[in-house]
Computed example of a mutant assay.
Amino acid sequence: MTAHPVDDLPFVDEHRILTPAPVPAVWRALARQLAGSRQRGTVALARLLAATPHARSGTPLDQGATLPGFAVTAAVPGRLVRLTGRHRFSRYALVFTLVGRPDGTLVSARTYAEFPGPHGRLYRLLVIGSGGHRAVVRRMLRDIRRRAERDSPA
Rank of each mutant, 00 (worst) to 15 (best):
T2W: 15
H4N: 14
V6Q: 07
D7I: 10
P10K: 08
F11L: 03
F11G: 01
D13F: 09
E14F: 01
E14M: 08
A21L: 05
V23H: 01
V23K: 05
P24G: 07
P24S: 10
V26P: 00
W27C: 03
R28P: 00
R32I: 04
Q33D: 06
A35N: 12
R38I: 03
A44P: 02
L45H: 06
R47I: 10
H54R: 15
H54C: 12
G58H: 10
G58M: 11
P60T: 07
G64W: 09
T66E: 04
P68H: 03
G69Y: 03
G69L: 05
V72Q: 02
T73V: 15
T73H: 04
V76N: 06
R79V: 10
R79F: 10
V81H: 05
R82K: 07
L83R: 02
H87Y: 13
F89R: 11
R91S: 13
R91D: 12
L94C: 08
V95P: 00
F96A: 04
F96K: 02
T97F: 02
L98G: 00
L98K: 00
R101P: 03
P102S: 11
D103Q: 15
T105W: 04
L106A: 03
V107A: 09
V107N: 04
A109H: 04
A109T: 06
E114S: 15
P116F: 12
G117P: 06
G117Y: 11
P118A: 15
G120K: 07
R121Q: 12
H133K: 07
V136M: 09
R139E: 10
M140V: 05
M140N: 10
L141G: 01
A148N: 00
E149G: 09
D151M: 01
P153D: 13
